[in-house]
Each structure stands twice: as structure tokens, then as C-alpha cells.
Design a protein around this nucleic acid. Structure first.
Length: 291
DNA sequence: AAGATTGTTGCTTA
DNA sequence: TTAAGCAACAATCT
């Protein structure tokens, strides 16, 4: 599940590879993925190029020079894989299982929904097994409306302790639901919410009005620490996440609770990591370390 | 073979 | 008016 660190990794990868390249051809294998009419979509992209790539929360924003923007959301299983003869690890030629370090085989595959071909013959594949992801072209006004739906963004100058404290004010939900709420704080998903709460020793069920001032500061610091480190290691690959050239992320080895149900807690070395549904999401935590 | 999985939207409820 | 909670969405895996 691509969250902020994964989407940011893809953004940085693609910015290096596709900015300024003319879009020569578009192949839409499944039009349900495109949230515009197919005609509109092709008309606004073909012959143009992306002038830069931005991100807000888990949403990628590809800027097209004539004040249009291509929004790409990967949701759970979306991938954006760039391939040219030199950098592609997931396409182009037949490969053995050993050569297939991406684990996604040759491209296009049965989950490839859209293919961009640039004028230098390089390609960008949008793959999505579960088809929750989407591509949508919007104008500047529409983009601004979309941006308004996002809360404070970690790793920007807007992400201050004061602003972070504000999202706790007058709320009754639990801390896990708060961290997952994109309208309040942008980019955290199920993996990093669990990791942050384990790091600070707070139970995911704790009501936010029972989180002390000093603990809010801890969460604030931990959020930045974990997100930065996850970006440094190019994100977490559990199943489907791949970076902009099809490779897996390397942060999984640093996860302390997520995906460790039934294992001994690495902090207290006594308790067993539990997993239950909290805030409508599978939630992993240590019943001893987290209070 | 039913249930879990995941992020977000939109509806309902409080 | 606003927040919280939940079903729905797609497709696969267990």
C-alpha cells in the first residue's frame, strides 16, 4: 500500500526520467481507470509533456504545460513503472525467475491498465491489480479544490508542532483514526500509523483527548523520523509496491510491528504482537509497550 | 469457501 | 453544523 514515502519515492524517480519527454502514444487498456472521457484524456496529453511532478499526501500531480494537471492515485495496488532499455527491470525482454528481481515479470502484464510511450521510445506503465487507482486530468481550479481536502503535510514547513497540536483539538476519535485521516494529516496509511504508535508507546485505541501534550510532541517527532527514514530506504514493499523503475522498497526490514502479528515484541521481548480491527483497519500493536 | 485485505468517497447517524 | 462510523468499491489471496 503506497503511502507518503512510497509515493514520494516514485515521484522522485519519475521526475528524473520523464519530465520534458514528449508523449507520443497512449494505450488505454481499461478505460474505467480514467476518470475523464477517453477522448478528452488523450487530447489533453498526446503531443504534450510533463513539466514537473508534485505530490500531496498519497496523490501524484503531473503538471502539463497548458495549466492542466494529471492526478494519479495508486490506492492499494497501483504501480507506475518506467522502462527504457537501460533502466527497466520489469519489461522489454524475456527473463528467468532469477533475473526478475521486481517480481512483476514482463510488461505489459495482465494488470497493465495504461501505457504512455514517449518520443524516445521509453514507456511508463500504470499497473493496478485491484483497479482502485485512477488517472484524472483536472484544470487549475479543480486542482485547488482537491488540494483543500488535504491536511498538513509532513516534511513541509507547514508541518509545525503548533499545527499538529491543532488537529487534536475538540476531537473524540482514537489516535489511529486521527493519523489515518487525510483531511487532518496527509500521507500516513496503515503501515506507518502502526509504526508511529509503536515507536511512541501509545495504544491505537487511545482517544485523542487523552493524549498528553508531551505525547503529542513525541508523535510529531516520530512521524517525521519514520517518514524520512522510510523515504531514505525507498519505501516498504509488502506485496505490490514498486518504485518508479519497478524495484522493491527496502524499508520492510525496519518495520517493528506491522506484519509481525504473533511474533515476540522486539522492544519488551516478552509480549506477543496482537492484531485487531481498530478504526476499520487491521492494526498491529504491542499490548505491553503501548499504553 | 467465506472473510480479510487496503484508501478513499459518500452516506447515515449522532 | 460538524464529526464519527460504516458500507461500498475490485480483485485476489488465504
Amino acid at each position: 500500500m503506497p503511502e507518503l514515502p512510497e509515493v514520494e519515492t516514485i515521484r522522485r524517480d519519475l521526475e528524473k526520467k520523464i519530465v520534458s519527454k514528449k508523449i507520443q502514444k497512449l494505450e488505454i487498456k481499461d478505460s474505467a481507470i480514467i476518470k475523464n472521457s477517453q477522448n478528452q484524456f488523450v487530447k489533453k496529453l498526446k503531443g504534450y509533456f510533463f513539466s514537473r511532478i508534485n505530490r500531496i499526501g498519497k496523490l501524484l500531480i503531473f503538471q502539463i504545460p497548458n495549466n492542466d494537471y494529471l492526478l494519479v492515485h495508486l490506492k492499494m495496488t497501483g504501480q507506475l513503472v518506467f522502462c527504457d532499455q537501460k533502466t527497466c527491470v520489469a519489461g522489454g525482454h524475456s527473463m528467468t525467475k532469477e533475473e526478475d528481481i521486481s517480481g512483476i515479470g514482463e510488461l505489459p502484464n495482465k494488470y497493465t491498465r495504461v501505457i504512455f510511450t514517449f518520443s524516445d521510445k521509453s514507456k511508463l506503465y500504470f499497473n493496478d491489480l485491484r483497479k482502485f487507482g485512477y488517472l484524472k486530468i483536472v484544470n487549475e481550479d479543480e486542482l485547488n479544490l482537491v488540494k483543500e481536502t488535504f491536511g498538513i503535510e509532513p516534511l513541509t514547513k507547514n508541518f509545525t508542532l503548533d499545527n499538529f497540536k491543532k488537529i487534536f483539538k475538540n476531537r473524540k476519535t482514537n489516535i489511529k483514526a486521527l493519523l489515518l485521516n487525510q483531511k487532518l494529516i496527509a500521507g500516513i496509511g496503515n503501515i506507518y500509523a502502526d509504526e508511529i504508535l509503536f515507536d511512541v508507546g501509545i495504544l491505537p485505541t487511545r482517544p485523542v483527548d487523552k493524549v498528553a501534550e508531551a505525547e503529542i510532541k513525541k508523535i510529531f517527532k516520530s512521524t517525521q523520523k519514520i517518514i524520512k527514514k522510510a523515504i531514505q530506504y525507498r519505501g516498504t514493499t509488502f506485496n505490490s509496491y514498486r518504485d518508479g523503475s519497478g524495484k522493491k522498497g527496502n524499508f520492510k526490514q525496519f518495520l517493528k510491528v506491522y506484519g509481525r502479528k504473533g511474533e515476540k515484541c522486539i522492544k519488551c521481548k516478552k509480549a506477543t504482537i496482537k492484531k485487531e480491527k481498530i478504526a476499520q483497519r487491521g492494526t498491529s500493536y504491542c499490548p505491553v509497550c503501548q499504553k
